[in-house]
């Protein structure tokens, strides 16, 4: 059977070029850029990290692309948000990747949201409420206290998956934690003027940010989570904002700026784009500058006329 021969020849050719080159560094695939950045801080040159998505992509709606299947196949560890954020694409990747190490329940499958207290946990699970997540709001990365909690758990996981370098991971964690605590003290000072400010959100993706900073959400531009803003709903929001004035309308880098811009034009509200994750703005280069840049932008929104 000639076709079988060609097939087998193809297999062996691929293996000859790829099977031999074993990588020393732990291959980590992060589902979102913030976890790639955190893993990079905690793993340094012990890890070879990449992110499946960018800050300009909506993490709810990612295609299970062939390139992602190939990257899941080659990963020793995947670091994702969990809490159903990746439910529309990650299961498809896991089923096709043929990688037993990163299946759910294995040490190679890390879900950050498992290690933080989640907000917005719905009391009623019904799609009439839009794209709700049973486990709670998955956008946990906007609060640096959550990053601190995830860093602890991720260090434990790196130590487990790459046990040969366990001591180095603990060392790196100690350094990271020291820097993180210093940064959080700095951010607490920067955040003080923001406390109590009324804001409008484009998507309900900032609850953790608001809880951290003490911001008050008076309205959301999306009529239901994950549903595009409609003209009639925007009018409602405008009425709300006239009754309860808000200082800023906040949207993430991956979102369409038009609904926020519209509100900004029609009400005395400043539209503020926040990076939302690493790479969402020029300033948000790593997990530290993500928060520096977010606070700088919010403070700029607070003082701008």
């Amino acid at each position: 059977m000639s076709t079988l021969n060609i097939f087998v020849a193809g297999l062996s050719l691929v293996c000859a070029t790829a099977c031999g080159s074993a990588q020393a560094a732990l291959k980590v695939l992060a589902c979102e850029p913030e976890w790639a950045a955190l893993t990079q801080e905690l793993g340094g040159d012990l890890v070879d990290v990449s992110s499946a998505t960018t800050a300009l992509q909506d993490p709810h709606q990612i295609q299970a692309k062939p390139s992602l299947i190939a990257r899941v196949r080659n990963a020793n560890l995947i670091v994702c948000t969990g809490a159903e954020l990746e439910i529309g694409w990650l299961p498809a990747l896991l089923q096709q990747a043929g990688n037993s190490k990163v299946q759910v329940g294995q040490p190679g499958n890390f879900a950050a949201a498992d290690f933080v207290r989640k907000l917005d946990v719905p009391t009623q699970l019904d799609r009439s409420q839009g794209d709700v997540h049973a486990a709670g709001n998955p956008h946990i990365q906007t609060d640096p206290r959550n990053i601190a909690a995830v860093a602890v758990a991720l260090t434990a996981r790196l130590r487990l998956v790459d046990a040969g370098h366990a001591a180095q991971y603990s060392e790196r964690y100690a350094q990271f934690d020291k820097r993180w605590q210093q940064s959080m003290a700095r951010w607490a000072v920067l955040a003080a003027p923001l406390k109590g400010t009324s804001v409008v959100s484009q998507h309900n993706g900032f609850v953790y940010l608001y809880e951290w900073l003490g911001l008050k959400e008076v309205a959301v531009l999306e009529p239901k989570p994950g549903v595009e803003p409609t003209a009639s709903h925007l009018q409602q929001v405008l009425a709300t904002v006239k009754a309860t004035p808000a200082r800023m309308v906040i949207y993430a880098a991956y979102q369409d700026p038009r609904p926020s811009d519209w509100l900004s034009k029609n009400a005395n509200v400043i539209a503020v784009k926040v990076p939302f994750t690493v790479g969402g703005s020029d300033g948000a280069k790593d997990i530290f500058s993500l928060f520096d840049d977010t606070l700088a932008r919010l403070n700029a929104g607070l003082v701008s006329k």
Binding site: V14, C15, T17, A18, I69, A70, R71, A97
Partner: peptide
Amino acid sequence: RWLAPTELFLEFGA
């Protein structure tokens, strides 16, 4: 099905 350990997605199925 077998997925090659390459950057390129390369899948073989029988």
